[in-house]
Amino acid sequence: MRIKSLLAVLAITTTLTVPGLALASEVTFTTNMRSYGGDGAYLAYYVTDAQGKYVGSLWMAGGKARYYEHLSGWYRATGGDTGEINGITGASVGSGRSLKITLDLADTLFDAGYELHIDSAVEDMRDSPNEVVVPLTSAGSGQAATGSRYVADFTYTR
């Protein structure tokens, strides 16, 4: 009787856990910066849906909220709400350096019309909203996208 109960519990927990594992995958974002010769860049990574509507943020490189208004695409979408980036904020990225971010993302983000945007800003230099915009697709994994100002190239792999 006891073994039967244990088996039932095991079956239920397995049933609940396996779909979660199957619907998520580890995704790595690699961003290489150009040697633009300025201070460290603030970078906002966020996702929009097929209609261009903001869905959520994935990472914020740069910790001071007062500079976020210079990441104008992200700022317009979120109103500068720092709650959007709680737990996903890191340091700004210096000229010529690279940032590698590893995230466990829902598989539903891929091949469903979602786009990843990167806004960038550097002190005393021009802001660069939508520095990188790439569709999130399985085929796009490992393909480098070129940035328009401060980002040399960006790649995601899953």
Binding site: G20, A24, G56, A61, G87, G90, V93, L99, I101, L109
Partner: peptide
């Protein structure tokens, strides 16, 4: 991470510069 539906619940993002 925030509960915006993009992340796996309980996951811990990592970044390296």
């Amino acid at each position: 991470p925030p509960g915006n539906g993009l992340f796996t619940p309980g996951s811990k993002p990592r970044a390296q510069t």
